[in-house]
């Protein structure tokens, strides 16, 4: 029994061909597309119709939480939980709380950035169907790939393969689920 198809994977020689192919595949009505490349390519995410990421908002929230929590911790510890006169300063000597507040703002914002990337991208992800396709190891070397998923309503094993070939694909590989 042959495994259920996940989709088709087409390899292109040049980034520009990949961007063109992605645009044309979208014009043809395909929506479940993704592209794989060894480095980011300008215009590719527009060609695939991807929306800009919401990550910056998340990072702002992370930074704000870190900063407020950091400042709050210092005020609470120095003025509420164990008030102690140091250097003859008032209990809430806010200027001397600035460095730690700043560091914690940056720390929380940066950790949110990275964890946000992992969460939104579903990393770590040990296995992905494209890894099973022949020749996919070139995606981290010099290959530029366009994938059309079988889950796309327009997907048809033969027609989609023909389309990818006319778009200039060097090879089209079946990807099993």
């Amino acid at each position: 029994m042959t495994p259920r198809p996940w989709g088709l994977l087409a390899r292109f020689d040049r980034p520009a061909e990949l961007v063109g192919a992605a645009e044309r595949a979208r014009e043809a009505g395909y929506r479940r597309l993704d592209a794989y490349s060894p480095f980011p390519i300008e215009g590719l995410s527009d060609a695939l119709g991807l929306r800009p990421t919401r990550l910056p908002l998340l990072v702002f929230a992370g930074g704000a939480v870190g900063g407020l929590a950091g400042f709050g911790l210092q005020v609470w510890a120095m003025a509420v939980d164990y008030p102690l006169v140091v250097d003859g300063k008032p209990f809430v000597s806010w200027p001397s709380f600035v460095p730690v507040t700043f560091e914690l703002t940056v720390l929380c914002a940066a950790l949110t950035t990275v964890l946000g990337l992992f969460a939104l991208s579903g990393l770590p992800r040990p296995h992905h169907p494209v890894f099973g396709a022949d020749g996919f190891e070139r995606a981290s070397r010099d290959g530029f790939f366009l994938a059309i998923e079988a889950a796309d309503p327009l997907f048809d094993a033969n027609e989609t393969r023909d389309l990818l070939t006319t778009l200039g694909a060097r090879e089209v590989a079946d990807v099993a689920e």
Binding site: F39, P40, S45, G63, A110, T113, S121, R125, S140
Partner: peptide, 25 residues
């Protein structure tokens, strides 16, 4: 490498993340 496959979706976010981290660092 966390299962990195060079997907454009990830690359796009990755570039934003790189810019954000540079701005924070």
């Amino acid at each position: 490498s966390l299962g990195w496959n060079g997907s454009t979706r990830t690359w796009t976010r990755y570039e934003t993340v790189y810019l954000l981290l540079a701005g924070l660092a």
